[in-house]
């Protein structure tokens, strides 16, 4: 294979037709940016919802009057409920310690006035599927070990779980996520069409050259390789640029969210990508590869109609 010849042919023609090259790179850049932003946003929202979902926990407060047998029976019931992922026992002392931390510097003054520890012990229960929160929580309402008389609370407030707002938020995010998938599909198709149109244009501009190559006795693959390489290079450059653009975009959004008053919760929903695990290391190269492969395919396929002998 005459790799160096094909490569120099491809680079040479990219340089000669630099306007077309710029147009093609820009096309790839724009399509891949849109696709990439959709991917990143989807990914981040997904992570956000996962962390929100993890927060949907059921708190079951144990009555101070409950007998050890009743508490043991409750523990038994929690362990045997299949929908429960895990549960954590919070003793009265631990509850008080948490309360003290929440109050901060003033805690000593307030807590000194208390005759005894008013906080109940509790179980914090995490369910496997956030949609089952209701069903699971209802199982503990009216349990003999459960305190129905928490000070200042109404009926059943001893079993506290998933607030309506959180659930509504999850619903919205779910919808956004579905929309993102649709958008990604549309933009993916748009990217393919745009890239192949650009490649076809550049080939149309050079159809005379292709005709001459055929007359000189070049085989189809001999003509095709430089075009495939051209597409590959164009796609690679365009999508690497897009990757950098996406990085900048994501970083800007993250910064902006951080600067708002909502920062604590919002950042959980929309984290900067380097904090969200290993995926960005996978995304950039795969985006670049996708662009390059699309370009190469575009180059190869768009030639077909000019290679009929």
């Amino acid at each position: 294979m005459r790799t160096s010849f094909f490569f120099s042919e491809a680079v040479g023609s990219l340089r000669r037709n630099w306007v077309m090259t710029m147009a093609a790179i820009l096309t790839v850049f724009i399509s891949m940016s849109i696709l990439g932003v959709a991917l990143v946003t989807d990914r981040n929202l997904n992570q956000g919802t996962t962390s929100l979902k993890n927060r949907i926990l059921i708190q079951v407060f144990i009555s101070d009057n409950a007998t050890p047998e009743q508490v043991a029976a409750l523990q038994q019931k929690i362990n045997s409920t299949p929908q429960i992922k895990k549960s954590v026992y919070i003793s009265k002392d631990q509850a008080l310690e948490r309360f003290r931390q929440t109050l901060g510097v003033n805690s000593a003054i307030i807590l000194k006035e208390l005759p005894n520890n008013p906080l109940p012990a509790s179980y914090e229960i995490y369910v496997k599927d956030s949609n089952q929160v209701d069903a699971v929580a209802q199982q503990f309402v009216g349990n003999p070990a459960v305190d129905d008389n928490v000070p200042g609370s109404g009926k059943h407030d001893s079993v506290v779980y998933a607030k309506k707002t959180v659930r509504r938020m999850l619903g919205i995010i779910n919808l956004v996520e579905k929309g993102m998938w649709v958008a990604m599909g549309i933009f993916g198709v748009a990217a393919i069409l745009l890239i192949s149109t650009t490649v076809r244009l550049s080939i149309f501009a050079r159809r005379r050259e292709i005709e001459i190559m055929r007359l000189v006795g070049a085989t189809n693959w001999f003509i095709r390789w430089p075009f495939i390489l051209e597409g590959f290079i164009t796609g690679l450059v365009g999508s690497v640029l897009a990757g950098l653009g996406i990085y900048a975009f994501n970083w800007t959004i993250f910064k902006w969210i951080k600067s708002t008053t909502l920062s604590y919760w919002a950042v959980k929903i929309y984290p900067p990508w380097f904090q969200s695990g290993s995926w960005p290391l996978g995304l950039l190269p795969s985006l670049a590869l996708l662009g390059a492969v699309l370009g190469a395919l575009g180059g190869g396929f768009a030639l077909r109609r000019y290679l009929k002998v």
């Binding site: 055929r214 000189v216 006795g217 085989t219 189809n220 001999f222």
Partner: peptide, 8 residues
């Protein structure tokens, strides 16, 4: 068809 380049 594939042999045409070799003819040329």
């Amino acid at each position: 068809r594939s042999k045409v380049p070799f003819l040329r």
